[in-house]
Amino acid sequence: MIEHPTDGIITGAAGGIGKALTLALAGAGVHLVATDLDKGGLDALVREADGLPGTVIGMAGDVRDRDLPQALRDRALAAFGGVGLLVNCSGFLKDSRIQKMPVDLFRQLVDINLIGPLRLIEAIAPVMRMAGQGRIVSIASRAWLGNFGSSGYSCAKGGIVGATRALALALAPHGITVNCIAPGFIETPMARSLPPHILDRVLKAIPVGRAGTVDDIAALALFLAGSGSGYITGQTLVACGGRSISNPIAST
């Protein structure tokens, strides 16, 4: 029987993938502190999760806030007594070719998609080490392989993939696994923010002929969070309908 950690923290919980994941994890009995920038979305999520086996506590915040990791950790420890799972699911996407990408936007993309998650891992890993077990799952992106227009976003996602390898090696002796999921195009508000002509080209480039669903990613995250994945660490699992092995979209 697959077992899941009893408690955890998830970021980006009000988003497309984050919400599906929070509900799936709470459905599997994981008690969660769920955070997101979007307070209204978070409140709605907490209401929706009411009655599931796992409790969902909402705590709004910005992953760029350097005090957030500590606050989330303290909240989870006070409420549940531990943090057995950390899911980094917050994310922000804005594309532009390098020539047109302002440095400030690049910085914002790296701050939200890489620095925030790393800061959270730094705060939570010691709690897991003390417990001698833990699961860290970060939602990276297929864009880590390179993606036209995504210099900031792919750079950040590549950073989390790189850190995951080093962290997995460092934390393996402490019973902690660290992995990434690299989704391809998943039907969520983030994906729908792409301009229609690009959206059309992206959809045509997916070998399985459809966009991914949030449930495709939730299933994978549930697996990585559970006892069945204990022998998997430092990996980046790509869920992209085959796009990572097909021709890239070379221009927009």
Partner: peptide
């Protein structure tokens, strides 16, 4: 390792562009 991973991906994307 985060720095190296980030650089690899930045360069892949700029190469595509």
């Amino acid at each position: 390792s985060a720095l190296a991973g980030a650089m690899l991906s930045l360069f892949r994307t700029v190469a595509l562009e």
